[in-house]
Nucleic acid binder design. Sequence first.
DNA 1: CTGTTAGCGCTTTCAC
DNA 2: GTGAAAGCGCTAACAG
Lengths: 336, 336
Amino acid sequence: MTVTIYDVAREAGVSMATVSRVVNNNPNVKPATRKKVYEAIERLGYRPNAVARGLASKKTTTVGVVIPDISNAIFAEVARGIEDIANMYHYNIILCNADKKKDKEIRVINTLLEKQVDGLLFMGGAVTEDHQQAFKTANVPIVLCATSDESEEIPSVDIDHESAAYDAVMKLIENGHKRIGMISGTLQDPANGYARFQGYKRALESSGIAYDENLVRIGNYRYESGSEAMQHFIDMEVRPSAIFSATDEMAIGAIHCIQDNGLQVPEHISVISVDNSRMASMVRPQLTAVAQPMYDIGAVSMRLLTKLMKKEHVEQSKVILPHDLISRQSVANISK
Amino acid sequence: MTVTIYDVAREAGVSMATVSRVVNNNPNVKPATRKKVYEAIERLGYRPNAVARGLASKKTTTVGVVIPDISNAIFAEVARGIEDIANMYHYNIILCNADKKKDKEIRVINTLLEKQVDGLLFMGGAVTEDHQQAFKTANVPIVLCATSDESEEIPSVDIDHESAAYDAVMKLIENGHKRIGMISGTLQDPANGYARFQGYKRALESSGIAYDENLVRIGNYRYESGSEAMQHFIDMEVRPSAIFSATDEMAIGAIHCIQDNGLQVPEHISVISVDNSRMASMVRPQLTAVAQPMYDIGAVSMRLLTKLMKKEHVEQSKVILPHDLISRQSVANISK
DNA sequence: CTGTTAGCGCTTTCAC
DNA sequence: GTGAAAGCGCTAACAG
């Protein structure tokens, strides 16, 4: 039924080894022989079996990617960066959603390892003891992608979330804002949540503005939660003049909430966020935001992984990509 | 170095076959033996090698997914539906972006087949002769997902794009609109482009409205192209009173273009589209759209594929999922 | 309920 | 430049 390398060898009148050589572009084959083999391959419609090859060579040319949620625009962008580079180096990707749930993460890491991936790209919530444990049993390289890791032992690529948030809030402060609300992600989330919240606090402190916990609302990264948080701020006796949102989507929810209350952005309230997804320029007013280079985070981490898989030397195993403030129309200057 | 089933067998004092049985939950093992084996597995830190298993059993429990672009929200949603169901049936997914480029599509289909996937989900542009050819050499089931196929020979799941477009345009007509512009995708794209354009024309015809080619602009599905097309309509001597956009993103570009020209939606111009991505409710005014159930398209096609892979009988191999008009605020009634 | 024995289709020394 | 042969780690009859 299925045609194997053995069939090709017989058809071409050579040995299996020779067929293997031509299939793998090994130069030690006489051109005439090579031609005979190609013809036999063509005639028989031979297709190499990558599973058998994987067993024999102990390489599968596939890498595992654990991701929180591919339907989230931010992660989808990272995934595209990963896949493009993987493709460039002839790797394929096994993609697993794990929703930042620890149990699911550990489970998929193990099945990926069973599948003998040549490397692993981990994008998740925090890296816990149990994660470390699972990683330890892997004898393939692993890189953390947009995921923080206290231990700092595992190669990783990400932006500096704390400093991105700091920059965003400083932009507000430079524009004369003093009463600044924050729509945060959950503080359990080390990167998008905790770190960005810390950046907010540091910006306030460094500018001599007292931190007020009533000015912080926790959202779940979704549009609706941004609106809800904003409604809370609007209902306050003395409203903030500006809002820092941990993510674009919540910021857009906030903008619309402001508008639905008959107020203007940025005339009445300014809004800034971190992310700069494509949606940022798809709202009116367009959203001023600190840009997180998602595609690059994916691309760079995959590139790093290829180096690790080839056992090439890497000088920097923890890479922090630069972020960048994109000024659009959602921030007003209110200093006199 | 790596511990194999043989090591476990020796450690537990049983045969490889027995270890294999317990690992695969074969009931024909005495509980006491099972326990011994589990202990040995634990002690040795044994992890089954799925590649070896795949070679021996001729099943990899992985399916290939070719997708146009994972960073596109619409496809990412489909992908999530696919992955959830795959996961439920213990399959993993190898994800390949092919950008609707025929060459790339054929190439990834072949590498996926080499990797011995148990099935293939194809999401692409048109299915050409060459695609058919590649599919024919596969001896695993294939299902087309959100992809049209003239031949209708391959199992598929999608919505009826023509009728979805028809419904959208009829909604406009029912609201008194007669001069209706269309922002279309390329007519080379059978589903999102050509079929939706046909639906537009049929709605017009069935209502006795003459088709006017000046009222159709071709976009590339992106926000900016929606804006550009809209600017063209606004600059016309006699403007359309309503716009049908083939996709949400272009519709949002159109809405903002209208607003940027100092006009109101829907007071001056109504807008409707097909897709209903999450962005539809993230614009002001919120977008009225025909909803395409992307997640379900993914989920249903994966479910169909699992049936095919298990050689279960399927009554319906071409499934058309229902679409649904979601009325929000972007369409006004202008009949007196 | 358990063990023996062939492979699965390919790569990879090691000879020649 | 080419071939022979020994696995890679596991499953799947087939016995018993």
